[in-house]
Computed example of a mutant assay.
Amino acid sequence: MSVILYGYHYSVYTRIVRMVLAAKDIAYRYVEIDPFSDNPDLAYLDLHPFGRVPVIRNGDFVLYETAPIARYLDEISPPVLLSPPDPESRALMMQMIQIADSYGYWPMVRQLFAHRVFRVAEGEEPEENVIAEGKVASRKVCEALDKLAGDGDFLTGAAISHADLHLGAMMAYFTLAPEGLEIVNSFPRLQRWWQGMASHALLRKTDPGLPVA
Score class of each variant (00 low, 15 high):
residue 177 A to Y: 02
residue 117 V to C: 08
residue 79 P to L: 15
residue 129 N to M: 15
residue 71 R to T: 12
residue 111 Q to F: 07
residue 77 S to F: 04
residue 146 D to L: 08
residue 92 L to P: 07
residue 86 D to V: 05
residue 150 G to R: 02
residue 74 D to M: 01
residue 83 S to Y: 10
residue 109 V to K: 00
residue 64 Y to Q: 08
residue 76 I to W: 04
residue 147 K to W: 15
residue 124 E to S: 14
residue 78 P to E: 12
residue 89 S to N: 15
residue 148 L to C: 07
residue 193 W to A: 00
residue 139 R to D: 13
residue 129 N to F: 15
residue 131 I to F: 04
residue 85 P to S: 10
residue 118 F to Q: 02
residue 87 P to G: 07
residue 192 R to Y: 04
residue 132 A to H: 11
residue 141 V to K: 03
residue 119 R to Q: 14
residue 70 A to P: 00
residue 118 F to Y: 11
residue 169 A to S: 13
residue 103 Y to F: 14
residue 76 I to L: 09
residue 109 V to L: 07
residue 138 S to P: 08
residue 172 A to V: 05
residue 182 E to L: 12
residue 151 D to V: 11
residue 126 P to W: 09
residue 121 A to P: 06
residue 153 D to H: 11
residue 117 V to A: 06
residue 187 F to C: 04
residue 166 H to S: 13
residue 68 P to H: 06
residue 65 E to M: 06
residue 62 V to D: 03
residue 126 P to R: 02
residue 184 V to A: 01
residue 131 I to Y: 01
residue 168 G to C: 05
residue 99 I to K: 06
residue 178 P to C: 05
residue 160 I to G: 02
residue 133 E to P: 04
residue 186 S to K: 05
residue 62 V to C: 08
residue 140 K to D: 13
residue 101 D to E: 15
residue 124 E to M: 13
residue 157 G to T: 06
residue 179 E to W: 03
residue 194 W to P: 00
residue 147 K to P: 04
residue 142 C to E: 02
residue 78 P to V: 05
residue 134 G to P: 01
residue 106 W to T: 09
residue 183 I to W: 01
residue 117 V to M: 04
residue 58 N to E: 15
residue 134 G to F: 01
residue 105 Y to T: 05
residue 110 R to V: 06
residue 102 S to P: 03
residue 98 Q to R: 13
residue 193 W to L: 00
residue 137 A to V: 07
residue 110 R to Y: 10
residue 131 I to L: 08
residue 151 D to N: 14
residue 87 P to H: 09
residue 157 G to N: 04
residue 136 V to W: 05
residue 116 R to P: 01
residue 129 N to C: 15
residue 57 R to E: 15
residue 185 N to K: 12
residue 155 L to W: 02
residue 190 L to P: 00
residue 119 R to L: 13
residue 101 D to M: 09
residue 61 F to L: 10
residue 145 L to Q: 01
residue 104 G to N: 03
residue 92 L to C: 15
residue 150 G to A: 12
residue 90 R to L: 11
residue 134 G to A: 04
residue 180 G to A: 05
residue 70 A to W: 00
residue 167 L to I: 10
residue 63 L to W: 06
residue 133 E to L: 10
residue 92 L to N: 10
residue 114 A to F: 12
residue 156 T to I: 11
residue 191 Q to R: 14
residue 74 D to S: 03
residue 181 L to M: 14
residue 138 S to R: 00
